[in-house]
Design a binder for these strands. Sequence first.
DNA 1: AAATGGATCATACTAAAGTACCAAATCACT
DNA 2: AGTGATTTGGTACTTTAGTATGATCCATTT
Lengths: 136, 136
Amino acid sequence: MKKIIFVFGLLILALLLLFQFSKYALISSHLKIEIIIAIIALVFFCVGIFINKKSLHKPTPVSEDINHQKIKDLDISKREYEVLLGISEGLSNKEIGEKLFVSESTVKTHVSNLLSKLNAKRRTQALQIAKDSNII
Amino acid sequence: MKKIIFVFGLLILALLLLFQFSKYALISSHLKIEIIIAIIALVFFCVGIFINKKSLHKPTPVSEDINHQKIKDLDISKREYEVLLGISEGLSNKEIGEKLFVSESTVKTHVSNLLSKLNAKRRTQALQIAKDSNII
DNA sequence: AAATGGATCATACTAAAGTACCAAATCACT
DNA sequence: AGTGATTTGGTACTTTAGTATGATCCATTT
């Protein structure tokens, strides 16, 4: 919010400066009208790109970052989350166990707890829910 | 490539038109210099946003759209692809069968073919590969 | 000190998933 | 009309996934 006000303030300031500059340049006849127009065009072209990048670009890619709060809300422990990441990599329970240096039984326990916490019936469904919840 | 040339051609054309317009407008004195500058500023502001959105915006959010060519390259049939989508929704083979109005056996066949085509051992791994290949 | 919760592991079981092989119906294309 | 690819479906089998239950260990909290 503060940034937007700041940027728009700068914009208005730049606009006023350009008006004054163009008047002065025309009266003193040191510069041709084409040059002035070119400068203005270039400046606002850059402003357009800048505005688009800062203000419109960021909200569009719909939350790429993971929602840590949601993980806590779902009461998912650290170990369970690691298992969830293993699932998202397409690993089997056995492979997840080897990766985390625990037995397959342990992984199964974590998976089972994960499924009930995510309210999923299968690991693939857990993936889908986890992605929708932005915790993955 | 063709698009870029086309866009730049339009840009140069617009620039020339603006030059001519500004000259005419100044000579005939129907418009004030501020108005002309404002119009030019607005136009190039919009052009800046447009260029940024079309040329720079798309490559950045790492390809949101699915790669149909890749699907063909992997020799994945239409039905197999539908099954793949079912998997990505977290459905079981039985549920996919109900959704596509075929038996679970058929779904199993499709899944098995999918896994070998995607070079995956499990459906979760198939999902991961499919996502990396932007076919999902 | 006792209770709590997370992590670990095991056993025994059921339910899915996946493989292999086969076979018939359908469809597009020549 | 015939050919090849797709789709469909079945049986029989192995493997993996998931559930239920119980138990131990450890760190934190009460």
